[in-house]
Structures are given as C-alpha cells and as structure tokens.
Computed example of a mutant assay.
Amino acid sequence: MTVEGLAGQVNQQVERVRETYEALNSIESTMGSSDGMISVVVGPQGQVRDIELDPRVYRKLSATELADAIMEQINRAAAAVSEQRRHLLEPLMPDGLRYDQVFGENVTLDAFLPSPVDPDV
C-alpha cells in the first residue's frame, strides 16, 4: 500500500469519527406513557431534558404512582438513547474489544491493560 493510500484511509477514518461524534451529540429519545399523560425527553448523555404532564394526571395518579410512572418513562428513554449510542459506536470499536467492555455497566480497566507479566519468564 502506498503512503497516499494510507493517508486516504486515515482521512476516511477521521471523517467517520467526526460524523459519529456529531451524531452522538444529537441523540435524543422521547417516551410517553400509553395513556398520553406523561412524556419525557432524554438527551445524549441520558440527562432528562423535558417532562410534560397532562394536568389530568394529578387527578388520576397518587404522588407515588406519578413518580413511578415518570421514572418508567425516563428509564425507557435512557435505554433507547443507550441503544442509539451502541449502534453508532460499535462499528468504531477496535478488533477484539467489545462495546460493553468499554461502555458497559461493569467496566474495568482490564479491557485496556495487557495481561500481567510473569517476572520469572
């Protein structure tokens, strides 16, 4: 492979990473309850951006039920955002490194570190 060919590949990868980064920053998920009383919007980092409540919800649900219903929609929206992130980032993962090793719930440094060296070898 020529230097020009390698440079072209590097430039393509850089552009792909830029596009992915831009797409990551625009991820958003809106979830609403089946009765239409509750709607939430979650942004790219899982942050709640908006909560909309139909005024009738206060007559329909107790405070505890309302809190639970809001949390259910937030969790659904956050899971959808997480899946969108996975879809965007998995193609960029290096060979031998899985998405969940880097971004999963129980991430450790093991995925990034070499195996221990035996000093007797």
Score class of each variant (00 low, 15 high):
V3M: 13
V3E: 12
L6K: 12
V10C: 05
N11A: 14
Q12T: 15
Q12S: 15
Q13Y: 08
V14L: 12
R16V: 09
V17S: 01
R18Q: 15
E19F: 04
T20I: 08
Y21G: 00
A23V: 03
A23D: 08
A23N: 09
L24A: 03
N25M: 05
S26A: 09
S26G: 05
S26Q: 13
S26R: 14
S29T: 02
T30H: 03
T30M: 04
G32T: 10
S34V: 04
S34C: 00
D35I: 01
D35A: 01
D35P: 01
G36F: 05
M37A: 13
M37Y: 14
I38C: 05
S39V: 11
V40S: 03
V40L: 02
V40D: 01
V41P: 01
V42A: 01
G43S: 01
G43W: 00
P44K: 00
G46Q: 03
G46I: 04
V48W: 06
I51Y: 02
L53T: 02
L53E: 01
D54C: 04
D54M: 03
P55K: 04
P55R: 03
R56F: 08
R56T: 15
R56I: 14
V57Y: 09
V57C: 11
V57A: 07
Y58Q: 09
R59K: 14
L61M: 13
A63C: 07
T64K: 06
T64S: 10
E65G: 15
L66I: 11
A67T: 15
D68V: 14
A69L: 07
A69H: 11
I70A: 06
I70K: 12
M71K: 09
M71Q: 13
Q73I: 04
I74Y: 05
N75M: 12
R76G: 00
R76V: 08
A77M: 04
A79H: 12
A79I: 06
A80L: 00
V81K: 10
S82Y: 15
S82I: 07
S82E: 15
Q84N: 13
Q84E: 13
R85Y: 07
R85F: 06
R86V: 14
R86F: 13
H87S: 13
E90P: 12
E90F: 14
P91G: 11
M93V: 05
M93P: 07
M93Q: 05
D95C: 02
G96H: 11
G96N: 11
L97C: 06
L97P: 07
Q101M: 10
Q101P: 04
V102E: 06
V102M: 05
F103T: 10
G104T: 11
V107F: 06
V107L: 07
V107E: 10
L109I: 00
L109N: 00
D110S: 13
L113W: 02
P114K: 03
S115C: 00
S115P: 00
V117A: 06
V117E: 11
D118M: 01
D118A: 02
V121C: 00
